[in-house]
């Protein structure tokens, strides 16, 4: 039953996110708002209640499965993107290589400074 009340917590935070987005017209998804609010609430409370952990852990573990119905969709729109696949693939692969190099180089430099202090 702990997981059930934890799940109600997660749904409530998501709904609060919806309300916040509705009134502020922020261009952010309600899930992100809910996530931030949950993090703040836990920090104020100073710990994770067992019920929230019971519901959050399995949900996070299942993230990959929850996005699967969407992943499958890419095979069915392949035809609509004829002529753009090279741009898509090069953009993704080369773009990822560049951003990996940037991140590692930047963090290496910054953390060296950090340790020197």
């Amino acid at each position: 039953m702990a997981a059930l009340s934890g799940f109600l917590w997660l749904i409530s935070f998501w709904l609060i996110g919806e309300v916040v987005v509705y009134f502020t017209v922020l261009p952010v998804s309600s899930g992100v708002i809910g996530m931030l609010l949950l993090c703040i609430t836990l920090a104020l409370r100073g710990g994770v209640p067992e019920s929230v952990a019971c519901a959050a852990q399995p949900l996070i573990a299942l993230l990959a499965m929850l996005i699967m119905p969407g992943v499958v969709g890419v095979f069915f729109i392949a035809g609509e993107l004829v002529g753009q696949w090279t741009a898509i693939l090069v953009g993704l692969v080369l773009g990822t290589l560049l951003s990996v190099v940037t991140t590692l180089w930047l963090m290496q430099r910054l953390m060296r400074g950090h340790h020197a202090e």
């Binding site: 998501w14 996530m35 609010l37 952990a53």
Partner: peptide, 10 residues
């Protein structure tokens, strides 16, 4: 996915 995103707050 909605509640799962919120769960990432933990």
């Amino acid at each position: 996915l909605g509640p799962a995103t919120v769960a990432l707050g933990m």
